[in-house]
Structure formats: C-alpha cells, structure tokens
Design a protein around this nucleic acid. Structure first.
Lengths: 240, 240
DNA sequence: CAGTGGTCTAGACCACCGC
DNA sequence: CGGTGGTCTAGACCACTGG
C-alpha cells in the first residue's frame, strides 16, 4: 500500500513505530527503544523523537514511564468513545453482577453472508459463535460473533464455553482498528425470547468489524434491548 | 468550576486559549496573537507556544496559515465521528434531494421534561420545534428540538419555517461541545405516521445536547427509521 | 541514585504566502 | 520581499521511579 511519504522527520518516526505496532512486530507490553537510542538511530535530536512518541502516547499506542521506558500499550477498550468493547467490564463497572452463556459455537466455511460481514473477498474458514451477556441475571445483550481463522488460528481449538470471545480475542490480537455500525431492529421471536422482550420490541444493534493491518479479524453483532440500553458519546467539533 | 491547575506552561497556554474560544471571547475567524507575541506575554520561548497551538490545531480549535497567522476555526460538523450534525449535507452528499418541513414551533416556559433534556436547574424560556427532513421525498428523520433562549435569544424571533434549526444554530453559536445518546424505540402511532412506518417499527433515536461553556444551548432528538438508517463510526483504540 | 521521560530554551533555517 | 508558522537542534534542569 503506497508509502504516504512522511514529509517530516517526526512523522516518519511516528509511521515507523505505528507500523511495528500494527504489524505485530512490537506486541503489547514490548519495551521500545529509548528516546536516546531512537535519536541516534535516526540521527536527530531527542526532542524530535520525544515529539513523535508523545503524539503516539496521546493517540493511545504507547505507555511511558520514567526510568522503565516506553512500552506498547495493551488495547483496553476498542473505543473510548463508544464504551462497548468489554461488556463484562461495562457491567461490573456499574456495580452489577456479570454472567455469560454460550448458546452456539461452530466451525464452518464462510458463507456469503459471513464473507459480507467480514468483508472478505476470498473463501475462508470461520468460527461462528452466539452467546449472551447478563447483568444481575437480566439479559443484557445477545452477541453473534464471527472469527476469521486465517488471522486467529488459535480460535479453532477454543471452546468459548466459559468466557466471551471478546476478551479472549483482545488477548490474541496485538492491536486493531474497528468499524462500527449502529442501527435499530424489531426483535424477531428468537431474539425476543433470548432478551425476554415481546416480539417486535425495538433493539439497538451495534455491529463491529475489527481489523489488523487490513485483514478482518472478527465481526461482532451485539443486540441490546433498545429502551433499556443507551450508547453515550461526547464530542467536540474536532476531526481527531 | 475548580481550576484544574495546569501543571505545565504549555498546558496553561492551551487552557487559556480554549477558555477564550469556548467563552466566546475569541469568535470563529478571530486572529489570535502571533506565536512571538504569546511567547513574550508568557515570558517563554516560541517552541513552548508552538507546542500549545499545534495541539489546539490538531484538536480542531484553530486554523493556522503562514504569513496570515492563527485564527479560531469555524466548527464544521458537530462531530466528525458521528456525521449527523448537518442533515441536509448528509443527504445531499449521497446525491439525494433534500426537503424540510416545519411541523410545530412554540415559545414556552421550560417544562420539567424540557429542563431535564437541557439539564437545566433553573426555570427558563425555551423554543420547542418539531420538524422533518426528507430525502428524495421519503421521510428521513423527525427532529424534536429545544433551544435555550437564555443562551440564544435570537431564536425567539426566528420562524424556522424554511430552514432547519440545526444549521441556523451553527451560525449563531460560536463554539460548542455535544453529548450524544443513542437508543432504539418502537414508533408510536404519531411517529410511525410521520415516518410512514407501521406502528411499533423500530426507530433509531439520537439525542444530542449541545453546550457552550457549561451552558446548555440546545437539545435535539432525531428519530430515524431504524432499519433504513445506520450510524457509522471508525475507531482506533485511543483515548481521544 | 542513576537513568528515564517531561519540559523548556535560545537559537536556527526553511517554505509559504500575503503585501 | 518580509513575516508567519513548521521544523529541528543541542543543550539544560527536573521529577519520578525502579533497582
């Protein structure tokens, strides 16, 4: 994919570090070279390296501590704006009891619908999962998950019986970008039964496709009871 | 509201500039002091001022041009993440014909529900508006709008007959932050009629409260046909 | 207490662009 | 052309913190 030609030196450093992280060369927790080392490597002053690393830290890619150095950050939430990544954390953070239940898990060749959800052009093998999340015993969310085995082969031998795939994937995949789509649907009989709603009740649907350096990792479709659940977000009129 | 004690000098400069913008002292288009002037004013080097202004530019508050200086940016969209600010632009951008219709406009003392929507503690006068947006003649969205007259007194004499309040407000208010809430509801008979849906059809509801330096400016509740409309968003696991 | 990042300086040169 | 922001330097001092 065309080199965007980083015009300035610190932009080139930013791109290089990002490539190492997004490409999985520097995994989460990895300690990257010290500012002085990078300055020597790029033949520039420490200020220039500092500017690059500070920017990457603000963007959430790095964690920096005096004395111990700079390490690749563990992706906490997939989105700080839509706090929907780790459902268990979302529930326990509000003081409610969390429970998980696996409804279905199957290995299959990607159907046309699977390929559509993962935006895959080629045939592929996927793991399909359907599971539920509960808060204080009440149905909180139904999750339909696809995992691309080409990217996460370890998923083939994972049962997902006791823990949700979201958290497991977060530990498998070093870093990712996510695309979200939000819509509303009327619950069909099956979904209504699972969420203990009346058939036709409005449900909020959040779909998230996660990528790792252009490859689709996973697709999650999360169905929430529409009137009980809300997504919150706060913005300034920026572009970042 | 307690001074957050800007620990570093460039953070203090950032806070000061932000206060001037969010407080309406420096309106959009206003040319702020040159780097050299600010450096002299704060008794620091130009690099320190440059760091502060560069950060504010990335955050979308400023626009900088060589020779002509640094000016306060005009807020384009209220949110670059959820592109829902200017509905007319959203529709025309996809090549469809836009139409607008005012259903109701009224001046009133804020009801308890109004105060709740605007998060107002005190009595206030508001303008309440109900209007619709169409794309290619099809109902696109029903908008229920509250405007706080204490912040935007000009709204008292605005009819909103020919143009939606969103765009008008964008021109009235120099700068703002927005809080979004997204949920799903079953359309009641009235909403279903307006959107030409069957009663009970799932609708996506986006609520946006806009603030200007702690004061509530306006609250918008946008109801979309849930299955026809989707919100898109793309994220990296950052914290900004 | 030694080494890391955090911050800041007082310069410098350059590209751009409005006058 | 002159003045602006964009970038970078080669230092400096400090705060914090892990060994």
């Amino acid at each position: 994919m065309m080199d965007p030609k980083p015009a300035t030196l610190h932009d080139r450093i930013i791109d290089d570090v990002k490539d190492n992280i997004l490409g999985g060369v520097w995994m989460p927790g990895h300690r990257i070279p010290f500012e002085t080392e990078l300055a020597a490597r790029y033949g520039c002053s420490r200020m220039t390296v500092n500017k690059a690393l500070t920017e990457l830290t603000k963007a959430g890619f790095l964690e920096r501590r005096r004395r111990s150095g700079t390490v690749v950050r563990r992706p906490r939430t997939q989105s700080a704006v839509l706090e929907i990544a780790d459902i268990e954390r979302e529930i326990t953070a509000t003081g409610r009891a969390y429970a998980y239940a696996l409804l279905f898990r199957g290995l299959r060749k990607a159907t046309p619908d699977d390929r559509d959800r993962l935006e895959l052009g080629e045939p592929a093998k996927v793991v399909g999962i359907r599971c539920m999340h509960f808060a204080d015993g009440e149905p909180f969310c139904v999750e339909e998950r696809l995992i691309n085995l080409a990217v996460v082969p370890a998923a083939e031998h994972e049962s997902f019986r006791d823990a949700a795939p979201g958290g497991w994937l977060l530990r498998q995949v070093p870093w990712s970008r996510a695309e979200h789509t939000i819509s509303a649907v009327n619950a069909d009989a099956e979904l209504a039964g699972l969420l203990r709603l009346k058939p036709g009740a409005a449900c909020l649907v959040v779909e998230r496709r996660t990528r790792l350096a252009e490859a689709s990792v996973t697709h999650a479709r999360l169905c929430y009871p529409g009137t009980k659940h809300q997504l919150m977000a706060q913005f300034t009129p920026s572009g970042r």
